[in-house]
Amino acid sequence: GPMASDKRPRTAFTAEQLQRLKAEFQTNRYLTEQRRQSLAQELGLNESQIKIWFQNKRAK
């Protein structure tokens, strides 16, 4: 629909990254900035991508 703007492409996470994020989520529903930074480095992701993933996951 018209609401779907092309400005922010959805990140396609790899299965491996998703597995890691899910495991982290089961341990911590809320990430500290430090955890998020190390996860971002570990997974080669953007911190904001991880932050948003957690927000979306909590919203469900």
Results as ranks from 00 to 15, higher is better:
Arg36Asp: 02
Leu45Asn: 00
Gln19His: 08
Gln17Ala: 05
Phe13Met: 07
Thr27Lys: 12
Asp6Gly: 07
Gln49Lys: 06
Ala12Thr: 12
Ser5Ala: 05
Gln41Ile: 14
Asn46His: 10
Glu33Trp: 09
Phe25Gln: 02
Ala59Gln: 09
Lys22Thr: 13
Glu24Arg: 01
Lys57Ser: 11
Lys57Phe: 07
Arg35Thr: 06
Gly44Met: 06
Thr11Val: 11
Asn56Asp: 07
Glu24Asp: 02
Ala15Met: 09
Ile52Tyr: 09
Glu47Lys: 04
Lys22His: 13
Ser38Met: 11
Gln26Ser: 09
Pro9Tyr: 05
Arg20Gln: 04
Pro9Ile: 05
Lys22Val: 11
Leu31His: 02
Thr27Gln: 12
Glu16Lys: 11
Arg20Asp: 01
Gly1Gln: 04
Gln37Asn: 07
Ser48Arg: 11
Gln34Met: 09
Arg35Asp: 06
Ser38Gln: 13
Gln49Val: 14
Met3Lys: 15
Gln37Trp: 08
Arg10Asn: 14
Ala12Met: 09
Glu42Thr: 05
Ser5Trp: 00
Thr11Pro: 14
Glu24Trp: 02
Ala4Asp: 15
Arg35Glu: 11
Gly44Asp: 07
Thr11Ser: 10
Arg29Phe: 05
Arg58Lys: 04
Gly1Asn: 07
Phe54Val: 01
Glu33Thr: 13
Gln17Glu: 02
Lys51Ala: 13
Gln19Ile: 11
Thr27Tyr: 08
Glu47Phe: 03
Gln41Arg: 13
Lys7Arg: 07
Leu45Ile: 10
Thr27Arg: 14
Arg36Tyr: 09
Pro2His: 15
Leu39Met: 04
Gln37Ala: 13
Trp53Cys: 02
Pro2Tyr: 03
Asn28Thr: 06
Leu43Ser: 02
Ile50Tyr: 01
Arg29His: 08
Phe13Lys: 02
Tyr30Ala: 05
Gln37Gly: 07
Lys22Gln: 12
Asn46Cys: 06
Thr32Trp: 04
Trp53Ser: 00
Leu43Thr: 07
Pro2Ser: 15
Leu39Gln: 00
Gln49Pro: 02
Pro9Glu: 09
Ser38Asp: 08
Asn56Phe: 14
Met3Ser: 15
Lys60Ala: 09
Ala59Trp: 13
Gln34Ala: 10
Gln41Asn: 11
Ile52Leu: 10
Leu21Asn: 00
Leu31Ser: 02
Leu18Asn: 05
Ser5Val: 06
Pro2Glu: 15
Glu42Met: 05
Lys57Leu: 06
Lys22Leu: 13
Ala59Asn: 11
Gly1Phe: 07
Asn46Phe: 09
Phe13Gly: 01
Ile52Phe: 09
Gln41Ala: 12
Ala4Ile: 07
Trp53Pro: 00
Ala23Gly: 05
Ala23Leu: 11
Gln49Trp: 09
Lys51Pro: 01
Phe13Val: 04
Tyr30Met: 09
Phe54Ile: 02
Arg8Glu: 15
Ile50Trp: 01
Gln49Asn: 05
Thr11Cys: 14
Lys51Met: 12
Arg10Val: 14
Arg20Cys: 04
Ala15Tyr: 10
Ala40Ser: 08
Phe13Leu: 08
Leu18Pro: 00
Gly44Thr: 04
Gln26Leu: 08
Glu42Gln: 07
Arg20Tyr: 04
Arg36Lys: 10
Gln34Pro: 08
Gln26Ala: 12
Ala23Phe: 08
Leu18Thr: 06
Gln55Val: 08
Leu18Glu: 08
Lys7Phe: 11
Lys60Ile: 09
Phe13Cys: 03
Gln19Arg: 11
Ala12Glu: 12
Gln37Lys: 14
Lys57Arg: 13
Gln41Met: 11
Thr32Gly: 07
Arg20Val: 07
Leu18Asp: 04
Asn56Tyr: 15
Tyr30Leu: 07
Thr14Ile: 02
Arg10Trp: 14
Gln55Pro: 02
Ala12Pro: 14
Lys51Leu: 11
Asn28Leu: 03
Gln34Leu: 09
Ser48Gly: 10
Pro9Leu: 05
Gln37Ile: 11
Pro2Trp: 02
Lys57His: 08
Leu45Gln: 01
Thr14Asn: 07
Leu45Glu: 01
Arg36Ile: 12
Ser48Met: 13
Lys57Glu: 08
Glu24Lys: 01
Gly44Cys: 06
Arg20Met: 05
Lys51Gln: 13
Gln55Cys: 10
Pro2Gly: 15
Arg29Gly: 05
Arg36Val: 13
Gln17His: 04
Phe25Pro: 00
Trp53Asn: 01
Pro2Val: 05
Arg8Ser: 15
Thr32Asn: 12
Leu21Ile: 02
Ser5Asp: 15
Leu21Thr: 00
Thr32Val: 03
Ser5Pro: 15
Ile52Gln: 14
Leu45Asp: 00
Leu31Gln: 03
Gln34Glu: 10
Ser48His: 11
Ala40Leu: 01
Met3Val: 15
Asn46Ala: 13
Pro9Asp: 08
Met3Phe: 03
Lys57Gln: 13
Thr32Glu: 05
Ser38Pro: 01
Arg36Gly: 09
Glu47Cys: 04
Ala59Cys: 10
Leu31Thr: 03
Arg29Tyr: 04
Ala40Ile: 03
Ser38Lys: 12
Lys22Pro: 00
Asn56Met: 14
Ala59Asp: 06
Trp53Val: 02
Leu31Gly: 02
Asn28Pro: 01
Phe54Ala: 01
Arg10Lys: 14
Gln41Lys: 12
Glu16Gln: 13
Arg36Leu: 13
Ala59Ile: 09
Gln49Ser: 10
Leu21Trp: 01
Leu43Asp: 00
Ala15Glu: 08
Arg8Asp: 15
Gln17Asn: 03
Ser5Leu: 02
Arg8Val: 15
Glu33Tyr: 12
Ile50Phe: 01
Lys51Ser: 12
Ala15Cys: 12
Ser48Trp: 14
Ala59Arg: 15
Glu24Ile: 05
Leu31Asn: 02
Ile52Lys: 14
Asp6Phe: 00
Leu31Val: 05
Ala23His: 09
Asp6Lys: 04
Ala15Asn: 08
Arg36His: 04
Thr32Met: 03
Asp6Leu: 02
Lys60His: 10
Ser38His: 08
Asn46Asp: 11
Ala40Gln: 03
Leu45His: 02
Lys57Tyr: 12
Ile52Met: 12
Phe25Cys: 02
Lys51Gly: 09
Arg8Cys: 15
Thr14His: 02
Thr14Ala: 03
Ala59Thr: 08
Gln37Met: 10
Arg35Cys: 04
Pro9Lys: 08
Gln55Ala: 14
Thr14Lys: 04
Arg20Thr: 05
Ala4Tyr: 14
Tyr30Cys: 11
Arg20Ala: 07
Ala12Gly: 07
Ser38Thr: 13
Met3Thr: 15
Phe25Lys: 02
Phe54Cys: 01
Ala12Asp: 07
Asn56Val: 13
Arg36Phe: 08
Asn28Asp: 08
Arg20Lys: 08
